[in-house]
């Protein structure tokens, strides 16, 4: 993890504690201290991990509030294979734990914290909804894998031949895996390359993070999501 932290924040400019699939701490981003919250090892997100993420967000809000200092940027470093699949988690109501994380993100945003996600591994389905997609700005590293379902599984469920899905995936970003597809649809704001200076990329992402949800318009601009903005406007009467 240290190699990634060094590249994102600069060598010796981060204090992050790793605890199993979870890590948290602080680091320098754009010459200011930022709060870092992350998952690794393609973590399956269950109630325990969701509570750790939520607790770290609440702690950041509480700390900045009590010291009356400007709210720090919160950086989510995301690597998740999706939600934990188990009867126990369903009994607890994992969806409610994910909703709680979303509320904490929303609270931080309202308190003036900027929320930036960097996908450094996988970002899949419900895990991504809980951890990552609620940020103001979402960035993906070159090897990031963003998806809901791979095409073979989708073929099984929808009964559409796999080969046909492969062909259709060339024409439309709407169902096939890939950070590039999420970029075209406006949900991933930035794709970073291996050659980029990730440290300055991150500083720029923080600078550009706005608190309004502009993803539908971005998807329209990039030609990947042609209807969402118009239909939303039609129903909203705006």
């Amino acid at each position: 993890m240290n190699m990634l932290f060094d590249r994102l924040f600069g060598s010796g400019r981060h204090t992050i504690t790793v605890d199993g699939d979870f890590f948290a701490g602080t680091a320098a981003v754009a010459d200011a201290e930022a709060v870092i919250i992350g998952t690794r090892n393609k973590a399956a997100i269950g109630s325990g991990l969701a509570l750790k993420v939520a607790a770290a967000i609440l702690a950041a809000v509480r700390e900045d509030d009590s010291l009356s200092r400007p709210p720090r940027t919160i950086v989510f470093l995301v690597d998740t294979q999706g939600q934990e699949l188990s009867r126990h988690e369903e009994l607890l109501g994992l969806n409610g734990y994910f909703a709680h994380v979303a509320r904490c993100c929303d609270l931080a945003r309202r308190h003036g914290h900027r929320l930036v996600t960097v996908v450094h591994g996988e970002a899949v389905s419900g895990g991504f909804l809980a951890f990552g997609l609620m940020a103001d700005r979402v960035c993906a590293l070159p090897d990031a894998q963003v998806r809901v379902m791979d095409l073979r599984a989708m073929s099984k469920v929808t009964k559409i031949p796999y080969d046909r899905l492969v062909v259709l995936a060339e024409e439309s970003p709407v169902f096939a895996p890939g950070a590039e597809n999420f970029w075209r649809m406006g949900a991933v704001h930035e794709l970073w390359s291996a050659e980029d200076d990730w440290n300055s990329c991150l500083a720029s992402a923080v600078f550009h993070a706005g608190s309004e949800d502009g993803r539908a318009l971005l998807g329209l601009e990039r030609g990947g999501r042609m209807l969402a903005a118009a239909i939303t406007g039609l129903v909203a009467g705006s």
Partner: peptide, 22 residues
């Protein structure tokens, strides 16, 4: 939940819906 025929669009829409409810 998400409609698999347009899974990416559905997932993004749900995250937009989450923010809209809040």
């Amino acid at each position: 939940g998400v409609r698999l025929h347009e899974a990416n669009a559905g997932l993004i829409a749900i995250s937009e819906l989450m923010r809209a409810v809040l």
